[in-house]
């Protein structure tokens, strides 16, 4: 344990600590404030921990006008997005992982390029098109846009997952009486399931957090982030904290569930668990 080694370690830990604080401190304060009694929020100097734990703020937030409805909208949009994304993304990922078709590399790159267009640029033409198609201000419309956003990631993640399932296993299933599709369903799919679940949650969170397109493409059927964004300017501070905390929850939950897979996903998961 030489001197430079200790120095390097110290610097590393300092950097890690700084980065962790940068992420955790806001989450901490938002979380704490969401459970602080309303009158304490404005107090200065602010205590690190509230004097008592209170569900008051959260209750107020959930009971405010439009919150429950937009919450239900958000859940529906996220579930629709999930369904669309997996229905298209998983087969695409499988195809990229298994078949050597012409333009495969181009496809893998090209799918990322779709993320290069800023939503702001597409907003007006999209709104016009959606009005024409009767999709404006509908949950399906928002879900379609969210699908377009989540799809590139879904394809890339599922490609990694299916690459981790050895081709031999499917071929073995085929020699044992399965059709190509049967081999996929009985062997590749069950093995890919944990990874696919992670991709699904990722998709869910992308949709859950998306605010810009949702705000532009809806008027009455707002999703939760869109609702909060449009009402936040006129809301009291505790409403903002409660809303913020509520929005963070699924992301936190998701991170805890998939942290194990995040390491595997990009390096190609191993099939033998």
């Amino acid at each position: 344990m030489s001197y430079p080694w200790i120095l390097r370690r110290t610097l590393l830990y300092m950097a890690v600590t700084a980065f962790a604080l940068w992420v955790l401190v806001p989450i901490f304060f938002i979380g704490i404030s969401a459970f602080t009694p309303r009158n304490e929020i404005y107090r200065w100097p602010k205590p690190i921990l509230p004097s008592r734990f209170s569900l008051d703020t959260m209750r107020f937030f959930l009971n405010s006008y439009g919150v429950l409805r937009s919450l239900s909208n958000s859940v529906w949009v996220a579930l629709l997005t999930l369904a669309f994304t997996l229905a298209v993304g998983a087969p695409a990922g499988y195809a990229v992982a298994r078949f050597h078709f012409r333009g495969r590399e181009g496809f893998r790159l090209g799918i990322l390029i779709t993320r290069m267009f800023p939503t702001a640029l597409l907003a007006v033409p999209l709104a016009v098109t959606f009005i024409k198609w009767g999709l404006y201000d509908t949950l399906i419309g928002v879900a379609l846009i969210h699908t377009a956003m989540a799809l590139p990631f879904a394809v890339i993640i599922t490609t990694g997952i299916f690459m981790g399932v050895p081709k031999d296993l499917e071929e073995a299933a085929m020699t044992l009486g399965c059709s190509r599709f049967g081999a996929f369903v009985r062997v590749a799919l069950p093995l890919a399931l944990p990874g696919l679940a992670a991709a699904a949650m990722f998709t869910f969170v992308i949709s859950w957090n998306e605010v810009f397109a949702a705000t532009i493409l809806t008027v009455n059927n707002r999703t939760l982030p869109a609702h909060i964004l449009t009402t936040i300017q006129a809301s009291p501070l505790y409403f903002r904290f409660a809303g913020g905390f509520f929005m963070i929850l699924p992301a936190l939950f998701f991170m805890f569930l998939i942290r194990r897979y995040l390491f595997h996903m990009w390096g190609g998961a191993t099939a033998e668990r």
Binding site: P166, D168, L169, E171, A172, A173, M174, T175, L176, G177, C178, S179, R180, V187, P190, L191, A271, E272, R273
Partner: peptide, 20 residues
């Protein structure tokens, strides 16, 4: 014919035993 209809069975180099 696909493998399933050929009346064959195969042993793979990697064994290809289903892990699940």
């Amino acid at each position: 014919l696909p493998p399933a209809k050929r009346g064959i069975a195969m042993v793979f180099q990697s064994y290809a035993v289903f892990p699940h």
